[in-house]
Computed example of a mutant assay.
Amino acid sequence: MKYVMESGDETRRLLVQEQADFSREALRLTGLTTGARVLDAGCGPGGITAFLAEWVGPSGQVTGMDLSPERLANARQLNQHHAHVQFHSADIRRTGLPDAAFDFTWSQFVLQYLPDRWDALAELVRVTRPGGKVVISEFDGFGMDFWPAPEPLRDWCLRFTQAIERTVGLDIHVGRKVFHAMRRLGLRDVRVHLLPQYVIAGAADSAMSLDWETRFSALESALAPVLGGVEDYRLMSRKYLELLADSDALKYSILLVTEGTRP
């Protein structure tokens, strides 16, 4: 599986994203407790793994799992002071972990990239103990909701998100589908929490602007050919960045955090 967002700046971008307040709020809402055995499935550079380690404390245990050797190296370095954290190199769809090993299984921004995402979800259920929780955090849309919505930028953003799904295979609406998938897998007490990934009323800060610059750069080679060529792609990307800097415009993105209990 190729990670389509890869770039030379992706580790930094992921850490900024992982350490945002919405991750802590999702963990609070879904009831993570001290002493729990936790799997961070698709841990990336380990920012959320660090949150989990702090949350469960030394009486708990956290396993971070990722396929990327670079991300795992970053995660180990970031979490080196946590003796109760370990890392495992594996595919989320075939973890190689034992049945019922975890009290709380967490995955954020991973299922959206997988064509066989529901097989991956079933695997996360398998490694969760009966009575334990599976928690999936995914966005709904690609974070390109804004107003005012001037043409031709509005039309380009629509074509941009459609191209992501058709060309790259990223499901930008996977968040809304997890509830149904958990119910079909037989999970109990399935609940959905709606959270803001961000709300920018006015000009975005430099970190958000850099995040979008990195996204556009990483996706250029895949999307520019179907969006009018490199010159047009870069022009419209700049127009979106100008919208981010507009002090009179609203920009926002939502998350759907879905939790279910293994029977």
Rank of each mutant, 00 (worst) to 15 (best):
K2Y: 00
K2H: 09
K2Q: 09
Y3P: 00
V4E: 04
G8M: 07
E10H: 05
E10D: 13
E10L: 09
R13V: 02
V16E: 08
E18V: 00
F22I: 04
F22N: 08
L27F: 02
L29W: 05
T33R: 15
T33A: 15
T34L: 10
T34F: 08
G35R: 02
A36Q: 14
A41S: 13
G42I: 01
C43L: 03
C43H: 09
I48G: 00
I48W: 01
I48S: 01
P58E: 14
P58M: 03
S59A: 15
V62L: 06
M65E: 00
L67G: 07
L67C: 03
P69E: 06
E70I: 12
E70P: 03
A73R: 12
A75M: 04
A75P: 03
R76T: 03
Q77D: 08
L78E: 01
L78H: 04
L78F: 05
H82E: 02
A83I: 05
V85Y: 01
H88C: 05
H88E: 00
H88V: 08
A90W: 03
P98C: 06
P98N: 09
D99T: 11
D99Q: 13
D103K: 01
W106M: 03
S107E: 01
S107M: 11
Q108Y: 00
V110H: 09
V110D: 05
Y113P: 13
Y113S: 02
P115E: 03
D116N: 07
E123Y: 09
L124R: 02
R126C: 07
V127K: 02
T128S: 06
P130W: 06
I136D: 01
G141V: 13
F142Y: 12
G143M: 03
F146D: 01
F146V: 02
A149T: 10
P152V: 09
W156Q: 08
R159L: 14
F160C: 10
Q162H: 13
V168W: 04
D171R: 15
I172W: 05
I172N: 14
H173W: 14
H173E: 14
V174S: 04
F179C: 04
R183D: 07
L185R: 02
G186Y: 08
V190Y: 04
R191V: 11
R191L: 06
L195V: 05
L195S: 08
V199L: 14
I200E: 01
I200M: 06
G202T: 12
S206A: 15
S209L: 11
L210G: 07
T214K: 08
T214Q: 11
R215M: 08
R215C: 08
A218N: 10
E220M: 12
S221H: 12
A222D: 07
A222N: 02
L223Q: 10
L223H: 10
L223M: 10
V226Q: 08
G228H: 13
G228T: 12
Y233T: 12
R234L: 14
M236C: 09
M236D: 06
S237C: 14
R238Q: 15
R238L: 13
L241C: 08
L243T: 05
L244R: 11
D246A: 15
D248M: 12
A249R: 15
S253P: 13
I254F: 08
I254N: 10
L255W: 07
T258V: 15
E259C: 14
G260R: 12
G260V: 04
R262S: 07
